[in-house]
């Protein structure tokens, strides 16, 4: 097995008394697409900044591409591509110029940066916007430009912090498609997200993070298999009646979660569970049978939803 590109052991980041990252351990193999899934404030971005060699860890050990970020920050960063949670494109520069100045930071010759910038604008589907002002781009375009910028040095690892937060569904799909291509080309991706569908789409393997700690680790499919049932039946009785109805639903399926607006019944077969609900004389206002998702895994592990 090839040497891992990232090895984190008992990684901790403290701000005064508060531990934003509280002892997490994981490895990322070359070519892998690795995800950190968790709600806002779970410590994902802090972890990403430590991996990005811009934030000094409080304790634990960390190796990026075989180097310790405390000692070799610039050498590590020269081989990374970083897409931060908040775009930091230079709004005083035009689209293509943003790529040119950024490429220079890596010490690349002008001609090489210019050629690479044109390729990347093509990749990011922004060629016709090369001379546009950054502020005139849509959110999705800015995000694609930030990704293009992160690829200017042909990084060995691409770090993506909440790549599609704030984008509309269409823009997200375009972005996912681009990231999928990178994955196919063998780029190592490390991404954080609080969207379970994004984690399912993009990550080969992921850790579920909450309050700075790892709750579970595995591929999306194995996490669902391990922590949830095959299907979920969602029933709504109206916010007034949910709690009383829940008492009558006891025993149906493997497990039951009462949320403010609906009840989730975890069962191998959602249809059979629904049949049982009707047999007991309960009439939900709406019912829905679906496959288990990472959202359910998170709910089971933490008792909370990913998006609050």
């Amino acid at each position: 097995m090839p040497a891992p590109v990232i090895v984190a052991t008992d990684l901790v980041k403290k701000y005064k008394d508060f531990a934003a990252v509280d002892g997490i351990t994981f490895e990322v193999a070359p070519g892998e697409s690795f995800g950190l899934l968790g709600p806002n404030g779970a410590g994902k971005s802090t972890t990403m900044r430590m991996i990005g060699a811009v934030s000094t860890r409080s304790s634990g050990s960390l190796s990026i591409l075989g180097l310790d970020p405390n000692e070799h920050g610039p050498a590590i960063r020269s081989q990374l591509g970083v897409v931060p949670q908040q775009d930091n494109l230079d709004t005083e520069l035009r689209v293509r110029d943003n790529l040119l100045v950024y490429g220079r930071y890596f010490g690349l010759p002008r001609a090489q940066v210019a050629a690479r910038a044109d390729e990347l604008l093509e990749f990011a589907q922004l060629s016709d916007r090369a001379k546009a002002k950054v502020d005139d781009l849509s959110g999705g375009m800015k995000r694609r430009l930030t990704i293009a910028r992160a690829l200017i040095n042909e990084p060995r690892v691409l770090l993506l912090d909440e790549p599609t937060t704030g984008l509309d569904p269409q823009a997200r799909h375009i972005l996912w498609d681009r990231l999928y291509r990178l994955r196919e080309q063998g780029t190592t991706l490390v991404l954080t997200t609080h969207y379970m569908d994004e984690a399912e789409q993009l990550a080969d393997r992921l850790i579920v993070v909450d309050k700075g700690r790892i709750m579970a680790e595995g591929s999306p499919a194995s996490l669902i298999r391990e922590h949830s049932s095959r299907e979920v039946l969602e029933v709504r009785f109206g916010s007034e009646r949910n709690a009383t109805a829940a008492a009558d639903l006891a025993g149906i399926g493997d497990r039951l979660e009462v949320l403010p607006d609906r009840i989730l019944l975890y069962a191998h077969s959602g249809e059979e569970a629904l049949a049982e609900v009707t047999r007991r004389g309960l009439e939900p206002i709406t019912s829905l049978v679906r496959r288990s998702s990472l959202e359910d895994v998170f709910l089971k592990l933490t008792g909370r939803s990913l998006i609050e």
């Binding site: 591409l65 610039p74 020269s78 230079d90 520069l93 220079r104 010490g107």
Partner: peptide
């Protein structure tokens, strides 16, 4: 294991920041 790319000297890197600012100007 890592092939560290040739490191331009510190002063050369600072110049890239200057270059950026001039371009923005």
């Amino acid at each position: 294991m890592s092939a560290v790319t040739a490191e331009p000297r510190s002063h050369a890197r600072a110049w890239f920041v200057t270059e950026h600012k001039i371009r923005a100007m």
